[in-house]
Every structure is written in C-alpha cells, then in structure tokens.
C-alpha cells in the first residue's frame, strides 16, 4: 500500500480541557494512510491526551474527530467497536495485563476478536513477541518480571496483535537503550512497509524523528503549530522549534541521520 495524501484520521477544531485547564484549543491534525507521523512537544503539552481523544478514551470538549471517514462518537457501540479494532494502541506505561503472562497478553485480543483457538492464538502471540524483539523464554514471564525495555516491546507486540491499520505509540523508545531504540525504529519501518499501517508516534527521541518519521507534527500553545516533513518543520520560525531541532541534541541527531543517508 503506497503512502498517499488520503487521511485515515482527521482531527478538526479539537478542544480538550480538564476543569479550567485548557489542554487543546482548536487543534487540527491529519494522519495519512501509510505514513509514520511523529508527534513532538514539550512535556505536558497534551500529546497523550490527543492520543486518548483520537482512540476514543477521552471525550473531547469540542471539535470533531473523523476516523476512516466516520465520526467515532456518533456510531452505535458495535460499529464503533469494529472500527476500534483497526487501531493498535501502545500506552506510555505499557499497560500490560498484570495477571496474564506475555503470551496470554498478546493472545487475548486474538481469541476475543479473531476467534482463534487458544493454542493457535498463543502460537501467533509467540511469533509477535519474537517480532517485537523478545527472546522466546520471555513468553511465559509475568509483566512485573520485565525490565522497562522489555515492557515496551511486549506492549508493541500486543498493539500489533490484530494487524492494526493505525498504530498509536506513546513514547515507545523512552527507556530503551540506544541500540534497542534503533532496532525498534527499524522494526517499525519494516512492519509499516510490509503491512502498510499508519503510525501516530509520540516521541521525544530525535533519532526516531530523523530515521523513521515521514512527517512531524509539533504541538505547542494548545495547537499543532506545523505538521510537515522534517525539513519544513526545522525551518519553521518558532522559538520552541528552533531550540528543539537546533539545540545540541537536535544537531547531533540530524548529523547522524545525514551520515546514515550518505553511506
């Protein structure tokens, strides 16, 4: 499936607030089919809240969110559940089910939604765990026995369980070692190329932005300031963006990406 201009998700005029605290005001954003969209912004600018609004976990206080051309909030429950099955979500803290081991965690949606038998589902789950870079013996571990990086990988495997069309990742490489993070980016691109899903990727990892993302959306001052390819975003005249991309870390990541391309 080629990348196209077609938007799978359209957010228009989104408003979110918690009491008097306004998080989003008149926020617009598109996620296009097959792209990896990096979402950046300072801590507390509402990236996670935006993700939760799109996947339907938070009721927006205004504006509209159209998913595959339909407004999730206006749909009856069963149609909505069917649409939501086309999402894969990886939460910031993993949110694995603590009373199930890893293979059961990944197998659960396969059994519930795809109607597989337990044995088939667990077999598939083990492959997905391996795809996410976990060793085979991890399949029987409980979530509280995992390191931070393993938790991220297991959460990715669960998000990928149903071969979603849109994958939402909330800071997936935070807490991974640099080698693991690079492997994660590579894995994400391989799977995206193979399966053609779109990715909404909240990240603070500049290397991920430079290597994996097709477009970058910058959230600041309650809105999306720009959402475009990296070159355009970097060139945007804004203090926060300048500090972010042209600070010491931004420069290093940009040079590293340049070297990679030159090879």
């Amino acid at each position: 499936m080629s990348r196209s201009e077609e938007a799978v998700i359209e957010v228009r005029g989104l408003v979110n607030r918690f009491g008097p605290h306004v998080v989003h005001e008149d926020l617009d954003l598109d996620i296009r089919r097959g792209e990896i969209l990096g979402v950046v912004g300072g801590s507390g600018t509402g990236k996670s809240v935006l993700l939760r609004s799109i996947v339907g976990l938070k009721h927006p206080d205004g504006g509209s969110i159209r998913v595959f051309g339909q407004d999730l909030r206006r749909l009856p429950a069963d149609q909505r559940s069917r649409l939501e099955r086309r999402f894969g979500v990886m939460f910031q803290r993993g949110a694995l089910f603590t009373s199930l081991n890893l293979q059961e965690n990944v197998a659960l949606p396969l059994i519930e939604h795809a109607g597989l038998s337990r044995a088939d589902a667990e077999h598939l789950a083990r492959v997905k765990l391996a795809l996410a870079g976990l060793p085979p013996e991890a399949a029987l571990l409980a979530p509280d026995a995992l390191s931070g990086g393993m938790t991220k990988r297991a959460a990715l495997a669960r998000a990928l369980a149903l071969d979603p069309e849109v994958l939402f990742l909330d800071e997936p490489t935070a807490g991974l070692d640099p080698i693991g993070a690079a492997a994660f980016d590579q894995l994400l691109m391989t799977l995206r190329d193979a399966l053609g899903f779109s990715v909404f990727l909240v990240t603070h990892d500049l290397d991920t932005l430079y290597t994996a993302c097709d477009r970058v959306a910058v959230i600041a001052r309650k809105r999306v300031l720009v959402a475009d390819d990296l070159a355009t975003v970097e060139a945007t005249d804004d203090d926060w963006i300048r500090d972010y991309f042209h600070g010491p870390r931004g420069r290093a990541a940009s040079q590293a990406a340049q070297r990679l391309e030159d090879q």
């Binding site: 492959v127 997905k128 060793p135 085979p136 799977l191 190329d193």
Partner: peptide, 21 residues
C-alpha cells in the same frame, strides 16, 4: 513486491528463534 519480502523475512527471522516451549 519488496514490502511482502520484508514482511516474510521479518516473520521468518522471528520464528527461527521462537521454538515452541
């Protein structure tokens, strides 16, 4: 197509190491 090769390779690579326990 190349994407499909990539998918099959990724899955095959993963399954090489995921012997049934």
């Amino acid at each position: 197509p190349a994407e499909r090769h990539a998918l099959l390779l990724a899955v095959a690579g993963a399954m090489q190491h995921s012997d049934p326990i």
